[in-house]
């Protein structure tokens, strides 16, 4: 079943035409990755889906419902949750408060407590630093917190914007572990934006390649991994 559909989306920043007619779909239970160079429009695509920037033209459907002009905070309550680029954790809130903010739209305190326990079990570091301010965490810990915060929203579809950015290789592996785990065990659908295309294409079912606001390739992850032009441009071709 198609969970998320983007149909011919156009987005502008003033006069800059950042998305020039993007179309993509994400099926329930899939991991789909969106790869592309700097400034290709990956973040803009996610922000368009979650309503942070307005869609100028085209439609966004969730389960067939039009959410193109739904306010950002309502889109979250429909289960579309974005973990923004650059972590964006709240530095003046404690680790626990950051997680609680993640669950802002929810009212099922039992479910929230269960998810909190799950996050702490998954990231014991966060448990140790529960009462510390977010701003005092290391980069890797902040990324864990950003992931944990997104999980606290109990998303149906999780939009991850470069979750491995700036992390040491060991931590990158840990983050990708969590992504596959969430998808397999919790059945969370994932749309993953990554500059680390090699890793992304390993965990993903399908992928889209974005270039200057347009989709240039759309295929199974395996096929993209073996596509010469993709290898050349994004996999450090040889």
């Amino acid at each position: 079943m198609t969970l998320l559909t983007v149909e011919n989306a156009h987005t502008y920043y003033g006069k800059i035409h950042a998305l020039k007619g993007i179309s993509l779909t994400v099926e329930e239970g899939e991991i789909v990755t969106l790869i592309g160079g700097n400034g290709a429009g990956k973040t803009t695509t996610l922000n368009t889906i979650t309503g942070i920037v307005p869609t100028a033209e085209g439609r966004i459907l969730l389960n067939g419902d039009d959410i193109t002009h739904t306010p950002a905070h309502e889109i979250v309550s429909k289960g579309v949750v974005q973990s923004p680029e650059g972590r964006k954790i709240f530095t003046r809130l404690t680790v626990r408060e950051n997680l609680e903010i993640g669950a802002y739209q929810r009212n099922d305190s039992a479910g929230i407590a269960r998810d909190m326990a799950y996050v702490f079990e998954r990231f014991p570091r966060l448990k140790e630093r529960e009462k510390q301010l977010g701003g005092t965490l290391s980069g890797g810990e902040q990324q864990m917190l950003a992931m944990g915060r997104a999980l606290m929203a109990s998303p149906r579809i999780l939009l991850l914007d470069e979750p491995s950015m700036g992390l040491a290789p060991l931590l990158v592996a840990a983050i990708f572990d969590v992504i596959t785990y969430l998808n397999r065990e919790n059945g969370t659908t994932i749309l993953l934006v990554e500059q680390n295309a090699a890793m992304a294409l390993i965990v993903a079912n399908r992928g889209y390649v974005l270039q200057s606001g347009r989709i240039t390739h759309a295929d199974d992850a395996d096929a993209l991994r073996n596509d010469p032009t993709v290898i050349e441009a994004y996999l450090g071709g040889h």
Partner: peptide, 24 residues
């Protein structure tokens, strides 16, 4: 309180707060 927490979050970063489902 939950609202107080949301106030502090909005004071720090409005667009991320909206991504968390807070009605800014």
């Amino acid at each position: 309180t939950k609202t107080g927490r949301a106030m502090r979050a909005v004071a720090e970063d409005k667009s991320t707060s909206a991504l968390m489902g807070i009605n800014v």
